[in-house]
Amino acid sequence: MIRLSLEIGQTQKPEAILFYILAPLSVLASLGMLVVRKAVHAALLLAWVMITLAIFYIALDAAFLGIVQIVVYTGAVMMLFLFILMLVGVDAPDSLTENIKGHRVVAIAAALGFGGLLISLIGRATLNHVSVGLAMANEPGNVQGLASLIFTQYVFPFEVVSALLITAALGAMVLAHSQKSAGARLSQRALSSARFRGDSLANAAGLPSSGVFARHNAVDVPALLPDGTPAKNSISGVLSARGDIQDPTQYALGSLPKVDDEGGDK
């Protein structure tokens, strides 16, 4: 702890200014994540925390790590998060009722365990170790140094992690896969020839459009045929199945002006 504070004391001025501006913002954003009600807001705050972390990494001379943090976490992981959240719905605030039994206990235990793990890792990395300094660590160049560590000393953990990720991706694909029969989806070509080579050419140019009586949502009002009967196939099949069809005659004017043979009003 003493060494840590000593190191902060040695921070150069621009870096210190950067830190004192961004660190409170970052902490506020992480606290806000717990408070806000909409999932998308929480995701946004998390993205902001990741960006500030990346800026810290860059300020600490770990340019590659910082940039990769943005590309991978902000660019890909958070974007996927947002993608899912948007699919869930625009106005869906998180339900706060707990429907998993013992949810809270498990969550607290996991959080404590993870915290302990982090502290022990940081302790192992800092206690009883003489730091060689950035100049030495970055001697062949920041990226080259990192690459030679990853692909020599840590190549096995690296490969294990990538295998884990690929397994997870494959698992997700298997879970999300739905069996579709091959002939279910007709190609545009097949649909077109079915229209023109079928028994009747009545619908060759497309179905009649709905909404002749465009008083409100016109898609649920059938069109009228020349003899005055409603054209059933001018309404989407989904609406017909739901029974969401309006009667077109209810929109007819009460008394149509009578037209004489010469075409003038009587």
């Binding site: 940039i67 990769v68 660019g75 947002l82």
Partner: peptide, 18 residues
């Protein structure tokens, strides 16, 4: 001139999509 300049451009693009 960053040693990771091109990656920087990629990361900026990925934030821009937000």
């Amino acid at each position: 001139d960053l040693p990771v300049g091109v990656l920087y451009v990629l990361s900026i693009a990925s934030v821009g999509v937000y």
